[in-house]
């Protein structure tokens, strides 16, 4: 299996003058397989956003290595290749849209890469269609809803033809409708376009269908496995301040009350299927 991103003994601390130097990331060893949908969860301050910035060389490891498609992020000669391979989408859609018109913003990345105008046009059309925003191509961004803006931001990354998209809490500032739009867009990109997705979030429901879920706490990887393996550990997750999907919580409570029910129920459908079996 081919790995798109590999971290080896990755440690990181912000350069502060203070005496109490604190490691934000502690000895992280991860291998991300190509084409997978990976969820990274953790509460605020667990280091998950810092980890995201390591993946496209916005931050460099204090110790250890990060390889993106075999390229060392510390090697500055590959900087732009790395950023094109692993695109990063941020939390606030307002602060990552550069141009005053949707299609021009999507063109921003490819323009930076020096791609010929005709091909940029094709890429913009492809990217906007992939996120379902093609009919809004002539709109100014401030006329769009939060979810639509975030989809435009995703299109801006897609247009650079990355192999991997990292999304750093892309739904944190959105309303439930916008959140749904963005999540289904991401899933579609993963399934239909085969783009590796690393979704960083604190909404457990968003990663229930992921191929793999990684739980972070205090700069370390605490749990790593399929959603069923991870969400089974209700007690551990609660200990580090995370919740589990509501249905899983229900199953956990029922089990504690003495009911014979599996603890790896993640969706309402699974619960219904179990009860009506």
């Amino acid at each position: 299996m081919e790995h798109i991103i590999i971290t080896q003994h990755l440690s990181f601390e912000y350069n502060t003058e203070e005496q109490t130097r604190q490691l934000v990331l502690k000895d992280i060893n991860l291998r991300f397989e190509k084409g997978q949908f990976i969820g990274i969860i953790g509460h605020n301050g667990s280091g998950k956003s810092t980890l995201a910035k390591q993946f496209n060389a916005l931050l460099l490891p204090t110790d250890g290595k990060v390889y993106v498609k075999g390229m060392d992020t510390k090697d500055t000669s590959h900087l732009w290749d790395i950023r094109q391979t692993a695109g990063l989408v941020f939390q606030n859609p307002d602060n990552q849209i550069v141009a005053a018109i949707v299609e021009e913003d999507v063109a921003f990345g490819p323009e930076n890469l020096g791609i010929p105008p005709d091909e940029i046009r094709e890429r913009v059309e492809y990217a906007l269609k992939a996120v379902g925003m093609w009919e809004y191509k002539d709109y100014p961004p401030h006329m769009l809803s939060g979810g639509q803006k975030q989809r435009v931001a995703i299109a801006g990354i897609i247009a650079m033809k990355p192999e991997c998209i990292i999304l750093d809490e892309p739904t944190a500032m959105l309303d439930p409708i916008g959140r749904k739009e963005v999540i289904s867009t991401i899933k579609k990109l993963n399934k239909e376009e085969g783009i590796t997705v690393i979704l960083i979030t604190h909404f457990m429901e968003e990663v229930v269908e992921a191929d793999r879920v990684i739980v972070m706490d205090d700069g370390k990887v605490v749990l790593d496995g399929t959603p069923k393996e991870v969400f089974k550990e209700v007690g551990l997750l609660k200990n580090i301040g995370l919740s589990v999907p509501q249905v899983t919580e229900l199953a956990y409570q029922l089990k504690n009350e003495g009911f014979d029910i599996p603890s790896d129920i993640l969706t309402v459908k699974e619960m219904v299927d179990f009860i009506c079996r």
Binding site: A107, N112, L113, I115, P116, P117, I120
Partner: peptide, 15 residues
């Protein structure tokens, strides 16, 4: 920066 912006050199324009 993460969208590969490096100033005006070698930049093309769609329009």
């Amino acid at each position: 920066e993460s969208r590969c912006y490096k100033g005006g050199q070698n930049r093309t324009r769609m329009k």
